[in-house]
Amino acid sequence: MWNNLYNGLINGLGMGSIYALIAIGYTMVYGIARMINFAHGEFITIGAFVSYGMASLIGANPITMIICIIASMLICAIVSIITEKLAYYPLRKRNTKRITALITAIGVSYIIYSLFNIQFQEIKSSPKFLNLSNTNLTILTIVITLVTVVLLTLFINKTKFGKAMRATSENPSAAKLMGINNDAMITLTFAIGAALAGLGAVVYCLRIPYFKFSVGSDAIGLIPFVAAVVGGIGSLPGAVIGGFIIGIIQQISVAFPETSPWTPAILYSILILILIIKPTGILGKSIGEKV
């Protein structure tokens, strides 16, 4: 009993920090472009496969892990910029309904998923960068997440780009009058979100022995999205808090054999309850409707 609880807590902190990294992408994109980016999960798949490819080229040890992280972040960001320019930018320019952006995101997610499905059928063993015990790995994951979040917060609050991003998310038309290029800021947000998903993918691969093409959509799936909504979609600290809450609840539920098969039901019930009690999530701000 206590052993299960302890293991669940440790795993939960580790998975929670990964969910937090990925949830930041959902929450930032929603905050600035007001769209639910259903294609975000696929960037985990891209990141995992890029790190696998790089590791098989240059070997797997702690130094190459940093190179792999940088490579997978870069490639995720580039793919994200390309999809943003090809699929979402034309829609935004024509000022279509919000539903169309959501459906386009589903389309992008289908395309990336099925391309990986067609190209990589077999299961890959994840690269062994480090040889750490579960507890140490969890501590490392938490450190990586906290450092990333602190750097991101500094970037958003202190630099010129970060201020421009905040301005765009607060009021796009006023930001445009101040000389801010809204489209560039939205593209930058998509790129940062995807890069964090790439980082999350490499860290996630440290915890699992094998992965395949459905790692982003089935293994992790919508759980980071649930985390972002629970924390308050649009809020960066909310995404981190939500990620840890959802991660700990999920892993504790998995650790007990009685509740293990009910884990998805528990997670999505929490989502429904939070939305019914406080639709904007734990840290979200409600925006009044203008007539």
């Binding site: 699929a87 034309p90 279509t96 169309t100 386009t104 389309g107 992008v108 997610s109 289908y110 099925s114």
Partner: peptide
Amino acid sequence: GGYQLLIYGVILIIVML
């Protein structure tokens, strides 16, 4: 397998654009 979702995705994006 896999081509069905690819075609769905392409149809969705083209129709939306």
